[in-house]
Amino acid sequence: MASAPSKLYADDVSLLMVLLDTNPFFWSSSSLPFSVFLSHVLTFLNSILLLNQLNQVVVIATGYNSCSYIYDSSTSTNQGSDNGRMPARCVNLLQKLEEFVIKDEQLIKEGLREGIASSLLSGSLSMALCYIQRVFRSGPLHPQPRILCLQGSSDGSEQYVAIMNAIFSAQRSMVPIDSCYMGSSNSAFLQQASYITGGVYLKPQQPNGLFQYLSTVFATDLHSRAFLQLPKSLGVDFRASCFCHKKTIDMGYICSVCLSIFCKHHKKCSTCGSVFGQAQSDVNSTSNKKRKTPET
């Protein structure tokens, strides 16, 4: 990525990081075929690039076993096999996507991740944030970055800590995370991500009109957003997952030192190592001394 100093980055220039869910288990059961989804997304990406010639789009595939950059508008040349049916950049993107899917499938054959059908959202979020950090550090002039999660598979509660860390990192760098969730129920992770970072969470009621949703809600740059009334989240599922078993819980135990969440009482915080349940005076006494432990 070469950010030429000659470019004049106005406040309406966007860097759009698109996280594309390529979970095969979701798409094989989805009412919206993946090909249709792709056609909507590709059209949307084209229109983003047409909105401002300085706009930049980066696509990261959120796979089942891995994540990968599959498209970067700043590096890909528009040269290629433009077969008349679609722009060259789309052909390149699809080519990279196909390669990614094949690689992702090979990974599943090596080590089978049993039981969970969620995609590696935490990985792709981290990659997007890394890319944004690189852009931030490239110089004082850069496009306004935002992340758009096009997610379909359900939340992987085992990724809770990693995703929350990514969300807070995005919040710190003032990067809004927009999310468009295609699954059947709402995604608590994406709701929280958009809520915390000031992005927009959207669950399209009519998936076959996805492009319309994308262009109406997510196409505008951050500067113009201030003048728009974008859909507001009606409710956010703020439930946390415990750090020990990665289960979504309503009530739990919180480490008083590092605020780690546990579903059961632990003698020691697995995150920061603080020892629980001993009064100040008992510190010197033997550790196996009987003490009050809340029943779990």
């Binding site: 390529t22 095969p24 288990f25 798409w27 094989s28 075929p33 993946f34 090909s35 792709l38 056609s39 590709l42 699809l94 996507l97 196909e98 899917v101 094949i102 992702d104 499938e105 599943i108 089978l112």
Partner: peptide
């Protein structure tokens, strides 16, 4: 798993 990945690749080829 194979079916799922297969259909995903099919979708990409289709588009």
């Amino acid at each position: 798993t194979e079916e799922a990945y297969g259909s995903l690749r099919q979708s990409i080829s289709k588009i």
